[in-house]
Amino acid sequence: MARLTTRSALLVLADGRFPAGGHAHSGGAEAAVKAGRIRDAADLEAFCLGRLHTVGLTAAGLAAAAALGLDPYELDAAADARTPSPALRTAARRLGRQLMRAARAAWPDPELDALAAAFPGGAHQPVVLGAAARAAGLGPEDAAHCAAYETVGGPATAVVRLLGLDPYRATAVLARLAPVMDEVAARAATAAHGGVDALPAASAPLLDITAEQHAAWPVRLFAS
């Protein structure tokens, strides 16, 4: 039963070039930039730190649980309950479907096929991420790391594009947050071992509020 842990598979899955649609999502950064809440690297760091401890932890928990093989229906329902914004639920399912496409090409696996068939409109992205990690031979903590990293990697890249922020400073923000990502991933993986009811549900009011505003903009660069 023990799956081989392959560190390089984790790099493939976590790579920003993995074609799963993430590049078009800012994780709320586009709205925060417009509202003046992100103006520089320090704001970006605070924004990313907040994301990590809220939606990042929640996503990491779901991903870890899916990687452990917990019931994906229950996990998807848990993800719905943790995502009050319909714009973010839609984005999560769309990204889930996009990730599923890439994951099935990368790591063909009957469990992924079954998950895709069960959720033709897409399961929540963290659930698919965990399943993809599982198909790649990775474990729950790997999946949680990947989710945590995505939580901040997306906004950092988006802010580089939106503000012309020095990419070295943006990368330094990510590097400074690395220990927090580790901590969040560890917490998420530990929680996942406790079952669906033990999963974190940390939320961020402003992300929910601005997601709906952003979705209604007539003109925007990022999908969310």
Binding site: R17, A20, G21, H23, A24, Q98, R161, A223
Partner: peptide
């Protein structure tokens, strides 16, 4: 319309998933 995250060439070449959707 597909959102391209300020990188239209990425959406048609490197990560085509949103367009395939």
């Amino acid at each position: 319309a597909v959102e391209t995250g300020a990188c239209p060439h990425t959406a048609i070449r490197d990560d085509i998933s949103a367009n395939l959707e």
